[in-house]
Simulated assay, not measured.
Amino acid sequence: MRNYLKYLMLFLAMTFSYSVLAQSVQWRDQHKVKRKETIFGIAKEYGVTIPQLLDANPSMKQAGYELKKGDLIFVPYSKEGDFLPDGSVKGKTDKKAATKSTVAQAPVKAVNAIRVGVMLPLHNQDGDGKRMVEYYRGILLALNQLKSEGITTEVHAWNVPKGADIRNTLLEPNASKLDVIFGPLYSEQVKPLADFCRAYDIKLVIPFSISGNDVETNPNIFQVYQT
Rank of each mutant, 00 (worst) to 15 (best):
M1D: 02
L10I: 00
S19Q: 07
V20M: 13
L21S: 05
V25N: 06
W27L: 14
D29F: 11
K34V: 06
K36L: 13
I42T: 02
Y46L: 10
G47M: 04
N57Y: 06
N57E: 06
P58N: 06
S59K: 15
A63L: 09
G64N: 04
G64A: 05
I73Y: 02
F74T: 08
S78V: 09
K79L: 14
K79E: 06
E80P: 03
D82H: 14
K90G: 00
K95C: 06
K95P: 01
K100H: 09
T102D: 02
V103G: 03
A104G: 01
I114K: 02
L120F: 09
P121A: 13
L122F: 03
G127K: 08
G129N: 03
K130E: 03
V133W: 00
E134P: 00
Y136D: 00
L140N: 07
L141E: 03
E149C: 09
A157W: 04
A157Q: 12
W158K: 15
N159D: 10
K162R: 11
G163D: 04
N168M: 12
N174S: 12
A175Y: 04
I181W: 04
E188F: 05
V190M: 12
P192K: 14
A194Y: 02
D195S: 14
I206E: 06
I221S: 07
T227W: 07
